[in-house]
Nucleic acid binder design. Structure first.
Lengths: 197, 197
DNA sequence: AAAAAAATTGAACAAGGTTCATTTTTTGTG
DNA sequence: CACAAAAAATGAACCTTGTTCAATTTTTTT
């Protein structure tokens, strides 16, 4: 069997483990048992478990991105709201995968990080920015970019809470509703700032 | 030596380890070495490491709360901004402790969770809510409470990113500035919603 | 001072990531 | 096809986690 097939197999099987049992069950030995390959083979293929998980994570980001670009709405306002809805839904339906993505302790000085994570995140941010540009044409570029960055960072951060049971304890508000309220309050706030200057 | 003294000692020494080297270095054995007590004693005192870290975490929450209630400002608007400033500053200056707090996988069904975490978080939320009530008197209770909850959850989520080097890669905006922009845009957004109804 | 109770200890266990000498498989060549 | 060389796969072994518990030491009680 060639190298790509093994990798593909190991990725698929690992994703099943995570989706069904959670990230804690994705260990080298369990992956070895589930796949039939030895522990050593996993290390030959991926170097180490961190790198393996990094790959799993950017697949998750890719999947999200492809869900987002499917959106067909007329107004930029509707699009932004749909993005948030899809984002929240995706996070909730793939909570284990998202949990793994968010809780991964990456070494950001690593070039690998830029290639795998940053590029993908930038693409998602661009989707938001495009529609925010349409929506608030009075805003200068620099300001608008700051608004978009803060919005994304906030949503991204928020998403990590959506996947935990902690949220249910902190708040009785539905996870999707939280994202919606945040977005719309935030957008209304930008409008004010646009008017002021 | 009596039980409280040992616990106090172990907590203090553990906090030093976390502050200086990060949560990863807070292991039972390293704590044992650093304190002079055996591993067994740590387990006699705290039951398990999770419980030990839980205690560390609510001390962190208490410290934050005590920093917040010191705020002396006239207007509610100023107070809210000062809260956010102090919150961001606290998180940044205690990033390892905050990281440990945020990344702790707690079992929320556990009664212990309610007593230790939820009560403390509620107290912090109350601070925000009190000033938001003054600021937006036109809002009905239910709506206002939703705004406060979402604001806190968002800030709390955001804080977890502030402590990682990931943020620096995602955004060139200063961590405190992110919190400030978020708060003020959000507050402006609430004002709009207040006017509308 | 002896007995009983309580507290402390650290070796030992399971499970995690990781390594690497050994074995197996594949590839290349006459 | 046969044989050598290269490549890939293997899993026992190592170290580090959290955790337990029989044995030991200390404290308290009588």
């Amino acid at each position: 069997m060639n190298k790509d097939d093994i990798q593909e197999n190991l990725i698929k099987i690992g994703r099943n483990i995570v989706q069904e049992k959670g990230p804690d069950f994705l260990t080298a030995r369990k992956l070895s048992e589930a796949s039939g390959y030895s522990v050593g083979t996993i290390y030959n293929q991926f170097g180490n478990m961190d790198n393996y998980i990094l790959i799993q994570n950017y697949i998750t980001l890719d999947t999200l991105y492809h869900n987002l670009i499917k959106v067909q709405k007329n107004s930029s306002y509707e699009k932004l709201n749909e993005y948030i809805r899809i984002f929240a839904e995706f996070v909730l339906q793939n909570r284990f995968l998202w949990h793994m993505l968010f809780n991964f302790h990456l070494n950001c000085t690593d070039r690998l990080f830029s290639v795998t994570y940053l590029r993908r995140v930038s693409m998602i941010i661009s989707l938001f920015e495009k529609n925010l540009t349409d929506l608030y044409q009075g805003l200068e570029f620099k300001k608008r970019h700051a608004f978009v960055e803060v919005l994304w960072i906030t949503l991204f951060a928020l998403s990590s809470l959506l996947t935990t049971s902690a949220l249910e304890t902190y708040s009785k508000i539905n996870a999707t509703k939280i994202c919606e309220l945040l977005l719309n309050t935030y957008l209304a706030g930008i409008k004010v700032s646009e008017r002021i200057g």
